Computed example of a mutant assay.
Amino acid sequence: MTSPKITNKQTEILTLIFQFRFLNRTQIQQLLNHKDPKTINTWLKDLTEKQFLNRIYENTIGANTKPAIYYAGINAIRYYKSLGQDNNPYLKKLYRDNERSQSFIDEQIFIADICLDFLEINAKGEINYTFETAAGVTSNPLYSFMEDLSPQLIFTKESKAEFKQYILVQLDSVSPKYMIKKRLKNYIEFFFTNEWEENTNKSFPTILFTCQTMTLMIYAKRTMKGLLNDYQEPEDFDAWFSTNDKIREQGISAEIWE
């Protein structure tokens, strides 16, 4: 089956959707560094009509002031396959994105906002951030050893004085407490495998856990403290916690981590 024709700029939008999974119109415009929202809307409307994108938009009072959210449609998935992604396990997840919860969608939008913050900092020239989203981690053979950990973001902060790597993990309030505890424990056990060092030739990164609520953060911090005690307080394991709201308000690089 021949896919409908699209422009190079529209192809860039599909690449962004692959990278971030869910993006709103404002984020797409910022990531493309494009000044004209009308042009962006024209491209998005065309991609939606041609089934490259699906659109989430509420046309009710209050909700209709929020930008529409876009995710991969059937022709986008076919396009990704045409690029040699047939065996990429990430593609299988995209088929079910029309069933995702609002909480899941919000998480993806949140990650995109963090990456936009990185790009804004990069533009100032003193610090440079590079990052891999969940799509990159799943698709990149370098990170195949992390398949069961499902981090939302791996990023590097580099300046003249510093080179530091981080793994960002989102903890959501929907998950039962035993699953939160298991996820925290998985990262401690991952530390002891030395797989990161063996595969990347870099020191083990700092783990940043973002929590949807303050209540969840308090529970996660207390649970991590108990787990680290069980593992005899490993010296080089570095984990920090913050809330999504603090990151939105002050930025991921602010002094908000506990």
Rank of each mutant, 00 (worst) to 15 (best):
F241T: 03
Y79I: 13
S253H: 07
I167T: 00
T2D: 14
K5F: 11
C211I: 11
Y143S: 00
P176R: 06
F110G: 01
K160D: 15
T206V: 09
T39Y: 09
T2R: 15
Y166G: 01
K45N: 14
L228G: 03
T65P: 07
C211T: 04
N54F: 04
A135R: 05
L153K: 01
T130W: 05
T65E: 08
V137W: 01
E258K: 10
T206Y: 06
K181L: 11
I247D: 00
Q29R: 07
N75L: 09
M1G: 14
D148I: 07
Y71Q: 02
F237M: 05
P89R: 08
N199L: 00
C211P: 02
R222S: 14
K45C: 13
N194L: 12
L119P: 09
K5G: 02
E195P: 00
L227D: 03
L142V: 06
M1L: 14
A112D: 07
Q30H: 09
W240F: 13
N33I: 06
I252M: 07
Q29K: 08
R222D: 10
E58P: 11
H34G: 01
Q108R: 04
T65Y: 15
L53P: 02
L168G: 00
S253D: 11
S3L: 15
L168P: 00
M214S: 13
T193V: 07
G125K: 03
T215I: 13
K202H: 15
E107S: 12
L153S: 03
V174L: 11
Q10W: 05
S159F: 08
L83C: 08
Q19E: 14
T48V: 08
Q29P: 03
T223C: 10
Y57H: 15
T193L: 01
N194V: 13
R25K: 12
P176K: 10
N229R: 06
A161L: 13
Q108A: 05
A68W: 02
N199I: 00
W257G: 03
T213A: 01
F20P: 01
L119C: 10
I40F: 04
L31N: 03
S253W: 09
H34T: 06
Q108P: 02
K124L: 15
R55L: 15
E258S: 15
Y79N: 09
I127F: 10
A123P: 13
E235W: 04
M214A: 14
K50R: 14
F209W: 07
G226F: 10
T243R: 03
E235H: 10
F22H: 04
E58D: 14
N54G: 04
Y219Q: 06
D148C: 05
K124I: 14
F163E: 14
I40K: 01
K38S: 12
T213Y: 01
Y95W: 07
I77L: 04
K93P: 00
F22E: 06
L53F: 02
F104M: 02
M214N: 11
S101E: 02
E162G: 04
A76C: 12
D230R: 05
L44A: 04
N87F: 10
D172K: 08
S253T: 12
D36L: 11
A254F: 12
I6S: 06
G226M: 11
T39C: 15
I69G: 01
K164G: 12
D106L: 12
N54I: 05
E162W: 02
Q29M: 09
R183A: 06
P4K: 05
T133M: 05
V137G: 00
F192I: 10
